[in-house]
């Protein structure tokens, strides 16, 4: 309870700072904050499925890509809000369709299958675009950075609230039972197929919208970029660095990742991926519960 209230205060302070930021007029900072909110939203949504159920997805970017593609196709002919809503809907429906077959396999097979599926969808859309003679689609009249930032911030807050809610709900307890032992979960009456599918779809909707907003920020769509597997890898990295035992893990992971990226890009652009890789290995070996787990231990000692 005490931890929750500290987290709540920290969250409100953070949110207030985030809301004031655009007033400073410093686009560079707003750009960083935009990225931060984006990674929080993506990692938090990933954790609803993967951290809760133990079904580790290495293809989370597929929902971003689908959302981005939907916005690329509909922007101009639909109001922007409808376009983004459509992006979330398309991602959710895709999750519903691919979820049933995909969620039948567990462990490393699920990891490989999600990765392969994301690559498959990417290449299908690359082919479609090539067939249509489109190599990239430019988006005109994208809203200014400040507006996009506020939308992204709203998504990050919404998915964080959803993640806290899921963790403390009956759904969350069912998902934890599935993670711990799926057969035992089934034997005690957890409707495992239904719950896994609900988590899969819930985890897909937000990244669909996030993908749409990302597209508006870069203002052009190119399939290989919208479905870049590095996005999936980064999400998993942030979840590991931040720790996924609580809803604050993905936030801590995104902060560490984005701030470090800024520093490394500025000073050692060639060493960027190498340093990130080393960090990931160190965390897996020595801090398996992530930054959030470190904080838990510190609080427990006090």
């Amino acid at each position: 309870m005490k931890t929750l209230s500290i987290d709540l205060v920290a969250g409100i302070v953070l949110l207030a700072a985030a809301l004031v930021l655009p007033l400073t007029g410093m686009d560079y900072l707003v750009g960083i904050a935009f990225n931060l909110a984006m990674w929080v939203a993506l990692t938090q949504s990933w954790s609803i499925l993967s951290a809760m159920t133990g079904y580790v997805s290495l293809g989370h970017v597929v929902f971003c890509g689908i959302g981005a593609y939907m916005v690329a196709l509909t922007t101009g002919s639909l109001p922007l809000a409808a376009s983004l809503g459509f992006a979330g809907l398309a991602a959710g429906v895709s999750a519903l369709v691919i979820g049933l077959p995909v969620l039948r396999v567990r462990g490393p097979y699920f990891v490989i299958l999600t990765f392969g599926l994301a690559e498959l969808v990417k290449n299908v859309i690359v082919q479609i675009e090539t067939g249509l003679g489109q190599f990239s689609r430019l988006i005109f009249d994208a809203p200014p950075l400040n507006s996009l930032y506020l939308v992204m911030l709203g998504l990050a807050v919404a998915v964080t609230v959803a993640a806290v809610f899921v963790r403390h709900s009956k759904l969350g307890r069912g998902l934890i039972a599935i993670r711990e032992n799926e057969e035992a979960a089934e034997a005690i009456g957890v409707p495992v197929i239904r719950l896994k599918l609900i988590a899969f779809v819930a985890a897909a909707i937000i990244p669909g919208i996030v993908g749409g907003v990302m597209l508006l920020r870069t203002s052009y769509f190119e399939a290989a970029q919208a479905f870049d597997p590095v996005i999936s890898f980064s999400i998993v990295t942030m979840a590991i660095v931040g720790g996924s035992g609580s809803a604050r893990g993905p936030i801590l992971g995104a902060f560490a990742f984005v701030l470090l990226s800024e520093l490394l890009w500025a000073r050692f652009p060639q060493l960027y991926m190498i340093i990130l890789g080393i960090l990931l290995i160190l965390f897996i070996l020595f801090v398996p519960r992530g930054l959030s787990g470190l904080l838990d231990r510190k609080e427990a000692r006090q």
Partner: peptide, 23 residues
């Protein structure tokens, strides 16, 4: 479905116990 059977009162205590070890 299994969860409907549990909801009618048929409960399996599985072979190998299958407790949730980390809880």
């Amino acid at each position: 479905a299994t969860h409907h059977r549990v909801d009618q009162g048929i409960v399996l205590v599985p072979e190998g116990r299958m407790v949730f070890a980390l809880l």
